[in-house]
């Protein structure tokens, strides 16, 4: 249960893009979640954890709504690009984007409060 609690910021970072129609607010929110998360999760492998979690979740979601982008096939065909990019790009981009924004938030906190030891919380399973 505690492990799950340690992962809540990863799930939370996925939500802004389902809430805000303005992309600027998505950026601000994910960066803010990243900043707040420094109080709750440690610094180790955050980027990759976030990337993998978001990739799994968004791939599942994208699989459900993938038909909404069927017309993009014409654009890929026009530029002589393979069709599988349509399945690949949105989940990978979103996972990468969320991970980067999240980590930017964390790094901002690190820079502004970087000198203060122990700011990044160490999770129980972290050495």
């Amino acid at each position: 249960m505690k492990k799950i609690i340690n992962y809540w910021p990863y799930g939370l970072a996925l939500l802004p893009q389902f809430i805000f129609a303005d992309y600027s607010w998505v950026i601000i929110s994910v960066v803010a979640i990243g900043m707040i998360s420094t109080r709750f999760i440690g610094a180790r492998n955050v980027f990759w954890k976030m990337f993998i979690i978001e990739l799994i979740l968004f791939s599942l979601f994208f699989f459900i709504v993938r038909d909404r982008l069927f017309y993009v096939k014409g654009v890929l065909k026009y530029f002589e690009m393979p069709e599988f990019l349509l399945l690949l790009v949105p989940p990978v981009f979103n996972a990468l984007n969320t991970a980067v924004l999240f980590c930017v938030g964390r790094e901002l906190v690190g820079i502004t409060l970087g000198g203060k030891k122990g700011y990044f919380r160490k999770t129980r399973n972290e050495i």
């Binding site: 809430i19 998505v26 909404r68 949105p90």
Partner: peptide
Amino acid sequence: NSVGALLTFRSGLLHVSY
């Protein structure tokens, strides 16, 4: 529009249902 806006759900193309 920006790539970020286009590929993110609510602000992007995935939100437009057909």
